[in-house]
Nucleic acid binder design. Sequence first.
DNA 1: ACGGTCGCCTGGATCGATCCAATACTAAAG
DNA 2: CTTTAGTATTGGATCGATCCAGGCGACCGT
Lengths: 345, 345
Amino acid sequence: MSPSRRLDPQPTLATVAERAGVSRQTVSNALNSPELLREDTLARVQAVIEELGYTPNRAARQLRTRSSHLIGLRFEPAQEGTSNALIDRFVHTLVEATARTGHHIVLFSGDPHDPLDGYDRLLKATAVDAFVITDTYAGTPQADFLRKVGAPFVTFGRPWDDPSARHPWVDVAGSKGAQLATEHLLAAGHQRVAWLGWEKSSRIGEDRRSGWSRALRAAGVDQAGLGVRISDNVDAARMAAHAMLEDGTVTGVACVSDTIAIGVLHALAERNLRPGTDVGVTGFDDSLGAQVAWPGLTSVRQPLEQVAIEVVDLVHAVLSLRAPAEPARMLEPTLVVRRSSLRQD
Amino acid sequence: MSPSRRLDPQPTLATVAERAGVSRQTVSNALNSPELLREDTLARVQAVIEELGYTPNRAARQLRTRSSHLIGLRFEPAQEGTSNALIDRFVHTLVEATARTGHHIVLFSGDPHDPLDGYDRLLKATAVDAFVITDTYAGTPQADFLRKVGAPFVTFGRPWDDPSARHPWVDVAGSKGAQLATEHLLAAGHQRVAWLGWEKSSRIGEDRRSGWSRALRAAGVDQAGLGVRISDNVDAARMAAHAMLEDGTVTGVACVSDTIAIGVLHALAERNLRPGTDVGVTGFDDSLGAQVAWPGLTSVRQPLEQVAIEVVDLVHAVLSLRAPAEPARMLEPTLVVRRSSLRQD
DNA sequence: ACGGTCGCCTGGATCGATCCAATACTAAAG
DNA sequence: CTTTAGTATTGGATCGATCCAGGCGACCGT
């Protein structure tokens, strides 16, 4: 009598079979190998499935086939101010891309001091089929561990430490992005384009820097004193920018991150210099901050949607045990031009 | 001979039982009802579990107990520019909070035009135990649907349309946040504090506006012409701010979102007015944008970490069929003060 | 020493879909 | 009209943990 209490028990495969006048296996085939059934039988079974609103029980299927159709992703605790917004954009598209094949993303967490924590548990419980790993910049202990235990995984991020690693990965050529940004600033007429990057210990930072360096070399610009390394926060960038702009010869600054670029914009505001017109600035990652910063920050945008699609494709390849066409895929970023790098008429 | 090919088959409950010289049920009890076992038996079983590194197979357990220990969350496609960064911060803490009880968050997606899409599928496949719903501002068709089919769920967001709804929810008092911001601006000496809000159709927007209104009323300030409604983007806000600042009587602007507040900051820059000193500005949500905006944007911060904890607590209450102590929980936001609302000495 | 109570432990049945081997059917060939 | 080949369909067994009803032992009082 209480309507929200309990609903009709879910129909099972047996229910459908009985109703359609066939055996369980036939219903199973209708779902998994429809080509095995005669046309009329298939139609009849499908009609009953439709009528009853039947959906296979995931637990039962998972028990039998030993595959959960779940993909694990360790979701790190939010670090205020850092650009995990990037990861979030990636996850969004990852969810969409997996949906198409009936897979789902399961988030888990782990001890922040132990990069391996959490993987083992899910694996032994046969709770997930594969993992997606997003942070490869600090070495790849997870990848090493998963390879050792024979668990399928794909990383977003190349294996920096071990170029010989054979696992499938997708990454974006950061150096190409920095190169695009630098070339763009040079083309806008800025001669001496400086670089504001991360500390030398960052592989990603050094990779991006190499793109800046390459562009300057191609343009025949002397890089002496133009490359500066700082930590990733607005204030450090602001102060570095002040020092850099002191003598007035630097008129372009390519930055390793939007955060740092925004710090440069702050310094410009404090010096009454016009972004774009007096000094061109570019950031990296096209974060929300770049979109709302005044007067709009030109930034390198990673094709995260495409990354997610490639990652999912590789996951499927690995799961189906077929060797992926190309297990290491490098994608190219694009430059989103806003007013921070454009002269006002 | 190929080490990464296949690993030892996972030990099962039967393996453990045999090794410990007890029956399967005894091992199961050791895991689920240890108080039923004699001390020495328990110790012996636990030792074997430890030794073999045994973890119960989730699929089998799920099939038998009909509970997956998974909680579904529909992850909407990234909408450029909107503050789904808020949701991401929420999800982070949600994952942490669920981890403590062995639950996991499963993300799924659905047709953007159909708010119900996806729920049904997971439910019928008995793939999740409960849902967490994050968007209740546009009515609550999901809640209605889930209540109808008897599925457990908790919403982040009050049931705006139907105050009589009895489902468990957690929300943050937006009106209180706007009130705090407005009082803060008044206390800083700004007399006429304007409101830049969303269109009237937004329940959340109107709720926040009511907090501004309440604060002005308490301070005895006439609100005529001070409340303006626009859509949520930087440019609309910039233009509205210009109009608003024209006559020079408005010296404080409380905004319904960081995006809009940033638009106001842009307008100030264009009019050569100093944020905080000439015109006080506050935003809402303490997004990354607020943190990096020049010269720092005072913003209302929602206690998302606490929200996540309360949501998980309610989920557990609902799943264990015990009535939650308080099924409707309203939390209070805080104000993060930065320089956009402070006079420079 | 014996029946009774209580608590620990056992083996069989079960959840629902899939695997597997075997059977019923159909159509073509002899 | 029977045999053969091949396909469509069936029923039993299975994945691994939990539910359930019953058994066995220890310990008590008399």
